[in-house]
């Protein structure tokens, strides 16, 4: 086994610093920050989903969750490649995935949260995919052609993710007493992390005005309508929990991101400059 090198000692290219409101003076940088947020959500969610492969409740789910993880990873690669091309100097997808510190990631807390049982995985996927469906549908009309293209491909994928999460929410919610209890507990555990998805306070308003980015707040109504239908049908109730603090888009993360990145980045950082 190669030894792990602490992130600070790796020879990394200069990581993009935290976004600021003044980024509207630098439109490429503002767009890069926005795309990084989307790419980091997909990357970290893919990493978590990948943990299920070879551990799922049945083989069909190893295949399905593997497929979802691959879709998310593919979205992450497109988004990070695009974000990296907007930076000065440009960064590759691997520079961004492997050589940034946790504080430079822009993902939401929902995707960072650790394992849990299959109900938790389903609850998280239901939330993420319902958000992704609205997001990518809106973003496929972006004035930025690259972003619109990535979103148009992704929207077909996340529609399948939502379908898969919906079917499992129904089975678990309306299955046995045990599965109902577990699914309700999973929803309660993940629900505080929903609101952060719709927080656009980090976003440069000029990007929204120019029709490049989507203000996430505009996705909230459709998201809640869709998810509450599924939750109702599954004989579950929407939890009335207080939203968690959030802050992922500004680089304030849960403690779980650091350990996820140690695992993801360790080998690459132990061999600075190597190609794989």
């Amino acid at each position: 086994m190669t030894s792990r090198v602490p992130p600070s000692s790796a020879e990394s290219p200069e990581a993009p610093s935290a976004p600021t409101r003044s980024s509207s003076e630098n439109p490429a940088r503002a767009l890069a920050d926005y795309v990084l947020g989307l790419g980091d959500d997909a990357l970290v969610a893919a990493q978590r989903m990948g943990e299920w492969i070879a551990k799922a409740p049945q083989i069909e789910e190893d295949v399905a969750l593997g497929n979802i993880a691959l879709d998310l990873l593919g979205q992450a690669r497109s988004l990070l490649t695009y974000a990296g091309s907007l930076l000065d100097p440009p960064r590759s997808e691997d520079d961004l995935a492997y050589l940034r510190e946790a504080g430079d990631f822009r993902c939401v807390h929902l995707v960072e949260r650790p394992g849990g049982d299959f109900g938790v995985a389903v609850a998280r996927l239901l939330i993420l995919s319902a958000y992704h469906c609205e997001l990518y549908a809106a973003l496929s009309a972006s004035r930025d052609g690259t972003l619109a293209g990535i979103a148009a491909k992704a929207v077909k994928e996340v529609d399948y993710h939502r379908d898969h999460a919906t079917l499992w929410t129904l089975r678990l919610g309306d299955g046995t007493n045990e599965s109902h209890t577990r699914m309700q507990a999973a929803l309660a555990a993940e629900w505080p992390y929903v609101e952060e998805l719709f927080d656009g306070s980090h976003l440069d308003p000029a990007l929204v005005q120019r029709g490049v980015a989507v203000d996430p707040a505009t996705l909230r109504t459709a998201f809640y309508r869709r998810v509450s239908q599924v939750v109702d049908q599954a004989t579950l109730v929407l939890p009335g929990t207080v939203p968690a603090e959030g802050g992922g888009r500004c680089g304030r993360h849960t403690e779980h991101l650091e350990s996820l990145l140690a695992d993801l980045q360790g080998l690459t950082r132990a061999h600075p400059g190597a190609t794989w």
């Binding site: 409740p57 049945q58 789910e61 049982d117 129904l170 089975r171 678990l172 299955g175 046995t176 599965s179």
Partner: peptide
């Protein structure tokens, strides 16, 4: 660990 999930799927079906 997946037993409860498979049981739920059967019960739902």
């Amino acid at each position: 660990e997946g037993a409860w999930v498979r049981e739920a799927a059967t019960a739902y079906a």
